[in-house]
């Protein structure tokens, strides 16, 4: 979570218009869901890895790190997709070539789609992305809450860590039962602190004229036609490439 956030704030493309990132990721997602997966999946993974690592200068390790966990899920569940269970005449478990192809297709389609999201998460700061949700029709209250939660996650995580370290320094985690008790106390304290903090935040906001709406400036980011054309071209190339390759395979 924190590593993703760090890359999103520091990558080379962070100052690009978030619409460009959304077009690439969203377009990629549509392609992943509509094109033949055997070819589109790997092509999309390549494209997104290239955009993230070569374009936005995010380390390859970070991209692979984000992809690793969901890929692990996919790989462990894929074998079961390949099996089919028949209960009509007793219990029959079988594995057919059609089942195997299906499993492969689902896996590659998912990986293609995941790579699009990994690109978006690693290259787009939350502050840039969330105001766009408002333009896309998400209610202001939901967007405000999302941004507040985003901000508070970091404060909360910091406090939780500090609290836990302080407890550990006083032997709060020396045995298993004591650990459980310490953790419970920590959680209870954090709840209370969160409430107090919310009250003080309200005072701070009111001092600055808060009357029910958290309005802030959105950064000015010019849309680059050149980049938009480039993104369109890349998506088109993936689409054509995957269809042609698919024909070649068939």
């Amino acid at each position: 979570m924190l590593a993703i956030d760090r890359h999103a704030w520091t990558n080379r493309w962070r100052r690009h218009h978030p619409g460009e990132h959304l077009l690439l990721a969203g377009g990629g997602l549509v392609l992943a869901l509509t094109l033949p997966p055997l070819t589109a999946g790997p092509l999309l993974c390549l494209l997104m890895a290239g955009a993230t690592v070569v374009g936005a200068a995010v380390p390859m390790r970070a991209f692979l790190g984000v992809m690793a966990l969901p890929t692990g899920f996919m790989l462990t569940s894929a074998p079961f997709l390949a099996l089919s269970l028949d209960l009509r005449d007793g219990l029959h478990l079988s594995c057919s070539p059609a089942g195997a192809t299906l499993a492969l297709e689902v896996t590659l389609r998912s990986l293609g789609a995941l790579s699009c999201l990994a690109f978006l998460a690693l290259t787009t700061p939350v502050a840039e992305l969330v105001p766009w949700l408002r333009r896309l029709g998400v209610p202001a209250a939901v967007v405000e809450i999302a941004l507040l939660i985003y901000r508070l996650i970091f404060i909360f995580a910091e406090r939780a860590l500090a609290g836990q370290q302080a407890q550990a320094a006083r032997q709060g985690y020396s045995t298993r039962p004591r650990s459980l008790k310490s953790l419970g106390l920590l959680i209870a304290t954090l709840f209370q602190r969160a409430l107090e903090r919310a009250r003080r935040l309200e005072v701070g906001l009111a001092a600055r004229g808060y009357v029910g709406e958290l309005r802030v400036l959105t950064p000015e980011r010019p849309l680059s036609r050149r980049r938009l054309a480039g993104i369109g071209g890349l998506l088109l190339a993936v689409a054509l490439g995957s269809v042609l390759l698919d024909r070649g395979l068939a």
């Binding site: 700061p125 939350v126 502050a127 969330v130 941004l147 507040l148 985003y150 901000r151 404060i155 903090r197 003080r200 935040l201 005072v203 701070g204 906001l205 001092a207 600055r208 004229g209 808060y210 009357v211 958290l214 309005r215 802030v216 400036l217 959105t218 950064p219």
Partner: peptide, 29 residues
């Protein structure tokens, strides 16, 4: 608008994702 108050603990006051956005909150209000 006449009397501005800065709290002791800055984390009680900063709520936006970026510095620029947070500073813009008051004047927008």
């Amino acid at each position: 608008n006449t009397v501005g108050l800065v709290l002791q603990e800055p984390d009680d006051q900063l709520f936006s994702a970026t510095v620029e956005q947070d500073v813009s909150f008051g004047p927008l209000n």
